[in-house]
Nucleic acid binder design. Structure first.
Length: 283
DNA sequence: GACCAGGTGTCCG
DNA sequence: CGGACACCTGGT
């Protein structure tokens, strides 16, 4: 058991920030994450004490990096333009969110699945895929790793249709095919610039701008990727008159995106309907 | 039963 | 290029 005082790690916020679909609450202030073929139970106690149920070795070699604990996120928060009230509120509210270092392959499939689905449906589909095709991690608790590309590529479209993927099953199948055959070498993508990486990812069926940016930000830790979903677009319209000052946040605009997303979706103090109504009026 | 949900591919001007 | 439309499926 590893115990640390981490004021800038808020597991609950990360769970609701939509970057990760295998992080779930299992009891009061206790979460379980399945990632990189491992399962970890995390309990947050008083005074920002976080307990990780793993060995020192595993913490140092895996989870420290997974939770991006070496990165100072306060620096990002304090870099926000003081005259931008909306963004200041978002960043303050987002304290504790970090960009996880997740498996690029898992992000590829997960965000292909995410299109036109809500978070619960995405989680459900990911669990079905893992249970059906993933390696056993913990037999007793029925915990399965995310399936490999090789394994998914051996599933038929018909089989995948039974995983509540809907029309996305053919996208998932062909992505698995591309990765397992080596046509798409995710390891090699790491050498590319952001634009090159985005273009390459978009050659995969079912990957457009938004999904590509999610894969880049959450799978490749490219902090300048700024996924624009419907929520973010409404905010850019409503709060910024259609122009967001990306240049001002070069090097960490993806982190800013997460703050905004979480604030707009989950903060009780921000009235979601404001931006929705505005959109209806304009249309 | 209609409508929508964290988009994308395709077709058409 | 930019706009319209279909697409699986599960939830109000």
């Amino acid at each position: 058991m590893i115990e640390k005082r981490l004021p800038d790690l808020d597991i609950e916020k990360i769970a609701s920030s939509g970057q990760c679909f295998r992080l779930s609450k299992i009891s009061e202030s206790t979460y379980r994450i399945i990632a990189w073929n491992k399962m970890l139970t995390i309990k947050t106690e008083e005074n920002q004490i976080v307990k990780f149920d793993c060995s020192e070795d595993e913490f140092e070699s895996l989870w420290k990096d997974y939770f991006d604990l070496e990165q100072d996120y306060n620096e990002f928060i304090s870099s926000v333009d003081k005259s931008d009230t909306f963004l200041c509120n978002s960043a303050q509210y987002g304290k504790g969110i970090r960009i996880l270092n997740q498996d690029p392959w898992e992000m590829l499939i997960t965000f292909i699945i995410s299109q036109r689905k809500n978070i619960n449906s995405i989680k459900k589909a990911v669990e079905i895929l893992s249970t059906k095709y993933g390696e056993v991690i913990d037999e007793k608790n029925h915990i399965y790793a995310f399936p490999t590309a090789q394994r998914l590529a051996t599933a038929s479209i018909e089989e995948l249709n039974g995983c509540s993927l809907g029309y996305r099953s053919r996208y998932v199948y062909s992505a698995a095919e591309m990765v397992s055959s080596g046509v798409m070498d995710l390891e090699l993508l790491k050498q590319l610039s952001d634009d090159e990486m985005r273009n390459k990812l978009k050659t995969i069926h079912g990957v457009g701008d938004k999904v590509a940016d999610c894969i880049m930000l959450f799978g490749f830790h490219r902090f300048d990727a700024f996924p624009k979903d419907v929520w973010i677009n409404r905010i850019i319209d409503y709060e910024y008159n259609g122009v967001f000052p990306f240049e001002q946040y070069k090097g960490f605009s993806g982190v800013i995106q997460q703050y905004i997303f979480d604030y707009v979706r989950n903060s009780p103090e921000y009235d979601k309907k404001k931006s929705l109504n505005n959109r209806e009026i304009r249309d």
